[in-house]
């Protein structure tokens, strides 16, 4: 099925306690290569019809108004899933 991927991340300037907890666990496991972790969200929108500019624009609008709260999060990507467009 045609799929649009929307990716959302907490704003860079905000503390991400989830990511911090995971980074803490990594450090306790002895990992020193990965210093920081931030956790965001990925939405997969199954599209009825082709993925054209209008579908991407509608997905972007949905991302900015509902899937993300742009006061605390950024929409970092809205794109067609590879091989499904």
């Amino acid at each position: 099925m045609p799929t649009i991927i929307v990716e959302v991340m907490p704003k860079a300037e905000l503390l991400d306690p989830q990511g911090k907890a995971v980074a803490g666990a990594l450090s306790r496991l002895g990992n020193s290569r990965f210093q920081a972790v931030r956790i965001g969200k990925r939405f997969e929108l199954t599209v009825d019809g082709p993925i054209d500019d209008a579908a991407i624009a509608e997905a972007r609008d949905l991302a900015e108004t509902m899937l993300a709260n742009t006061i605390i999060e950024d929409v970092v990507s809205v794109h067609a899933a590879e091989g499904t467009a």
């Binding site: 907490p10 306690p17 911090k20 605390i72």
Partner: peptide, 10 residues
């Protein structure tokens, strides 16, 4: 206005 985010101490 504004937002509410996870408690800073987790």
């Amino acid at each position: 206005p504004g937002g509410l985010v996870r408690n800073d101490h987790g």
